[in-house]
Nucleic acid binder design. Structure first.
Lengths: 195, 195
DNA sequence: ATGATATGCCTAACACCATTAGGCTATGAC
DNA sequence: GTCATAGCCTAATGGTGTTAGGCATATCAT
């Protein structure tokens, strides 16, 4: 049963797999220990506490997502890059629902400083090269894209679109269209904008 | 201590207050019972289980949010209405963080069918009257606005913007500007769009 | 090789939580 | 007055996170 040696990384991975299989909320130290063929107190040699474990899953998910986004947007520009970025998020949310849920939690220090987080921001900013935005607007546009994509996927995942027509799949393309249009028609900053 | 009679509504309200005060995750049957000066098994006469209680908080939050949005957008049109709607969401998220968190959960039957949920969708659609969108695009635009506003507030709340400059407050206005621009420049549906 | 040390698992224990079963009491109907 | 019911209670069960301390095995100095 203990084919895998017990390390911080292997525990986090087991937790992530468990999250994908049975839901992020069911990631409990007991369940992870069970899955590793070990008693739960044994995990404390490698992991500070439950919160640190969940934060570890968040960091892992950020890394994986950054990698997917990176591959998706490579060699693309403009609308094509935007769509690839959005679809990479959506695919990840679909294929690894538990890991993706880990992204929807208050970010701790470790996640905030992680390479994955930085990369995702940088890659989103890179997509903006295909649009006529001044450099000073990039922060806002990155946040805009992030908010919309994340918000849509989360509402879809929570079933918010399940009770109305048409299906969420149709809206997804319209929303990428709208994002694209918004970036093309990006409004000039009004006077109140100070960094 | 039992100034308030124990009913389903009073229990849900106590749970919502507790969520605002100490965080949505800390809403436990024990804690709610404690707050009501009662033992936790007593709650089961009025509430099915913990999940039903949380769903009740969600419905309450939907109702309250719908009411705020309704007041905010009344007598406004176009960008002014859009901004009022977004700010109503943001104010609610700020003032009642626990209740607002209740909105970010998988929606059950009761929440999906609630008047609050229907009203919020209808009010968002009403904002679109000030923009040149064909009726058939309203669903998508409503989902677009909902995704962006929700996504932004959630990332802000999770501290996703806390580690970068400029502050989230500045971006908020830029994002409403961008939403406004997107609705004005709403792209024509491509051929693939079938309801 | 041998003994010291340290690592890393274990069991035991505690407090907290959700939930069920069943008892006691006060309130209302008749 | 009696009786039934509603609504609280206590008791108990099984699951959770977490800490304390035991015990074996691997690592290393000599």
């Amino acid at each position: 049963m203990k084919a895998i040696p017990l390390t911080a990384a292997s525990i986090v991975e087991a937790a992530a797999d468990l999250a994908d299989a049975t839901g992020f909320d069911s990631v409990t130290l007991s369940a992870v220990a069970r899955r590793l063929g070990v008693r739960s107190p044994s995990l404390y040699s490698h992991v500070q506490d439950r919160d640190a474990l969940l934060e570890g899953v968040t960091v892992l998910a950020l890394t994986e997502l950054a990698s997917r986004v990176s591959v998706a947007v490579a060699g693309r520009a403009g609308r094509s890059a935007l769509e690839a970025l959005a679809d990479a998020h959506r695919d990840y949310a679909r294929e690894s629902p538990g890991r993706w849920d880990a992204l929807q939690r208050p970010v701790g220090e470790e996640a905030a400083r992680s390479a994955g987080a930085r990369d995702i921001v940088a890659l989103t900013a890179a997509v903006l090269r295909g649009y006529p935005l001044p450099e000073s607007e990039h922060v806002h546009a990155v946040r805009f894209i992030g908010s919309t994509v994340n918000g849509y996927l989360r509402i879809e995942r929570n079933g918010g679109f399940a009770h109305s027509r048409p299906s969420a799949a149709v809206s997804w393309h319209r929303i990428i269209d709208a994002l694209d249009a918004a970036l093309r028609a990006w409004p000039a900053p009004s006077e109140g904008a100070r960094p």
